[in-house]
Design a protein around this nucleic acid. Structure first.
Lengths: 243, 243
DNA sequence: CAGTGGTCTAGACCACAGT
DNA sequence: CTGTGGTCTAGACCACTGG
């Protein structure tokens, strides 16, 4: 995983890296259960020591690409169940086979209120970007979202066309969120939300409120509050082991 | 991670395991940044080869307990941010510093309906356990939960006192969920839920509906539907990187 | 039985950090 | 400079699997 001792050039390939990438290519796209070359086979093929081959294969095992079966051999692992990861609205909608649409309702510089300031880790009252969007999918209104950004996260956003996907824009700046903290509650839509989300008059209007704080490394890159029409959007989670 | 070649006994300790556990004890509770013994130090201390020591330390690095710094040494890693893991109501409440209370409203054998049967991966109409509970914390009603279990998951539960914590009971059977799939929606409480959750007459009653399917290995151990009073219970999530 | 992965040894040279 | 971790070798014996 850690590439050390590599110089400015493409770096003369370390042997265990050569073997690892060779095996990775062999294995990519292969059906789970397909046998990988045996360790001794790779030893003679590459003319390296067995420990070197093991180091290469160990990395692929940790990655979850291979599985060792003592006494049997090394095989392509069946893909492990995935934990839910930080995803943007656009990505969540895409996973449902639809395309996200965005209508910018508001995009301007404001003074940070105390709650937002704390979440963004900036001084209360300092200038931040407030971006309010109505998000649609399949022609239906799904969600009203207020995003708050530190001004240096996407400098000059307000001067150009607002991007369709916030996460795509962050990605281009190398600031794709690596972690997020979300809190989720049920509530009833406000009058403004009722209208934006196309609730009929008198219709009961439960919404899912999601507050997100997303960070890249040590930097808070997004603070947002969203209200989802939950009859049009269900939140799915896959969670991993607790041990 | 994988313990192979160990016989019925406590198994004669493998050297790399001895070293690993020795270092683990040294390191446990130490502040992040604390240096671990150097590899050569451990070599002379245990009279083993350096590769053996490296194997031991590698395991702790993968666990996230140690961090290597080339040219500097090996150090206690600062705890990595944790992804949210599959947790029980009791655990979630305990994390908030309260104690979960449980009132069993219903516990009996029923015939599986089509939806529950599919989720539990049993034949429709076959016998399953249906367990309905009111869950409280700090004296307040938090959640109404319907749990459906395959009969062989907790054999004889209905004949004894119902456990306080389902996950604890599953744990004792070696069936603690390793994965869960949850879907989350906002809704309004039904009349029965309104009463159980102490909503006042005429009070607006938004609830968070969580459907969970929890598995241990290949076995579905829990299917449940819960309705949370979201003014008394907020769902928190920490999600990891998407790359 | 032969072949597999799991463990282990006793050395070696390298790049890098700190002094 | 010394000490660290990163890489690598050329063997070895073991327990296990399958035929």
């Amino acid at each position: 995983m850690r590439r050390v001792g590599q110089t400015v050039e493409t770096a003369r390939e370390l042997k265990h890296v050569v073997v690892r990438e060779h095996v990775r290519k062999l294995v990519q796209g292969a059906a789970p259960g397909t046998p990988a070359p045996s360790e001794r086979e790779l030893v003679s093929q590459f003319g390296v020591a067995r420990m070197t081959v093991r180091q290469a294969l160990d990395a692929l095992v940790v990655e979850g690409l291979l599985e060792r079966m003592p006494g049997r051999g090394t095989f392509v692992a069946r893909p492990r169940r995935q934990q839910t990861q930080v995803a943007s609205f656009s990505e969540a909608v895409a996973r449902r086979g639809q395309v996200a649409e965005t209508v910018t309702l508001l995009a301007r510089v404001e003074q940070a209120g105390p709650g937002v300031a704390r979440a963004l880790e900036v001084e209360a009252g300092s200038a931040i970007v407030h971006w309010r969007r109505l998000r649609r999918a399949g022609g239906e209104a799904i969600c009203v979202q207020d995003v708050y950004l530190a001004p240096d996260v996407l400098p000059g956003v307000l001067e150009s066309v607002m991007p369709e996907s916030l996460y795509e824009a962050l990605c281009l700046r190398g600031l794709r969120p690596t972690w997020s903290e979300d809190s989720i509650q049920a509530d009833l839509a406000s009058d403004e939300e009722r209208e934006l989300l196309d609730f009929a008059a008198g219709e009961l209007a439960p919404v899912l409120r999601v507050s997100r704080r997303a960070v890249h490394g040590e930097r808070v890159v997004e603070v947002s509050r969203s209200a989802y029409r939950s009859d049009r959007f269900t939140l799915y989670l896959q969670l991993g082991p607790s041990s």
